[in-house]
C-alpha cells in the first residue's frame, strides 16, 4: 500500500481501462469516439513511460549502479510500445479497423507482459533500493502521473 511504486502499478490498471474502451470504440466502428479515446489512452501510456524514464529509473540506476540491467530492458520495451502506438495512430487516421485491432492486440500483449515484469520484479526491486528516497520521490511520481489523470 505504502510502496513507492504502488501508484505506478495502479496507473497500469488505469491505462488498461483506457485501452479497453478505445479498442471497443474502434471494434464497434465508432470512429468519432475513437478519435478522442485513442489519443487519451496513448497519452496516458506516454505519461507513465515519462515518469518511469525521468524519475524512477534514474533513481534506481543511481542507487544500485545498475544501468544495463532491468531498466535498460524496460526502456527498450517502452520504445517498442511507442512504435505500436504510432501504428495505432496511423490506423486510426486511415480508419483501418483490421489494422488497428491487430496493432491493438499486439500492443496489449506487449504491455501486459511488460507490466507483469515491472510489477513482479522491477518495482519490488525499486521499492527495496529506493526505500530511503521514498519521501522525496513519492510526490514526484504521484504528481507526474496526475498530469494526465
Amino acid at each position: 500500500m505504502d510502496h513507492l511504486t504502488a501508484p505506478l502499478a495502479a496507473h497500469h490498471k488505469a491505462c488498461d481501462e483506457e485501452f479497453a474502451i478505445a479498442e471497443e470504440a474502434v471494434a464497434n466502428g465508432d470512429w468519432g469516439r475513437a478519435s478522442t479515446l485513442v489519443p487519451s489512452f496513448t497519452q496516458a501510456l506516454e505519461t507513465h513511460f515519462g515518469v518511469e524514464e525521468e524519475h524512477l529509473f534514474p533513481a534506481f540506476e543511481a542507487s544500485t549502479g545498475m544501468t544495463g540491467g532491468p531498466t535498460r530492458m524496460m526502456r527498450m520495451e517502452h520504445m517498442q510500445m511507442r512504435t505500436l502506438m504510432a501504428d495505432l495512430a496511423a490506423a486510426l487516421a486511415a480508419r483501418d479497423r483490421d489494422e488497428f485491432l491487430g496493432c491493438a492486440e499486439t500492443l496489449l500483449l506487449l504491455m501486459q507482459q511488460h507490466n507483469m515484469k515491472e510489477e513482479n520484479i522491477l518495482y519490488p526491486m525499486c521499492d527495496q533500493a529506493l526505500a530511503g528516497h521514498a519521501k522525496a520521490l513519492g510526490p514526484v511520481i504521484a504528481s507526474g502521473l496526475a498530469v494526465e489523470a
Binding site: 512504435t83 501504428d87 489494422e99 491487430g102
Partner: peptide, 22 residues
C-alpha cells in the same frame, strides 16, 4: 496467442515494419 506474439516480438528487431499479430 503465443505463436503470433512470439513471431512479432522476435521479428520487430530484425525487420521493419513488422506485420501485427493478427
Amino acid at each position: 496467442k503465443i505463436v503470433p506474439f512470439l513471431n512479432w516480438l522476435h521479428l520487430q528487431r530484425v525487420v521493419s515494419p513488422v506485420p501485427n499479430m493478427k
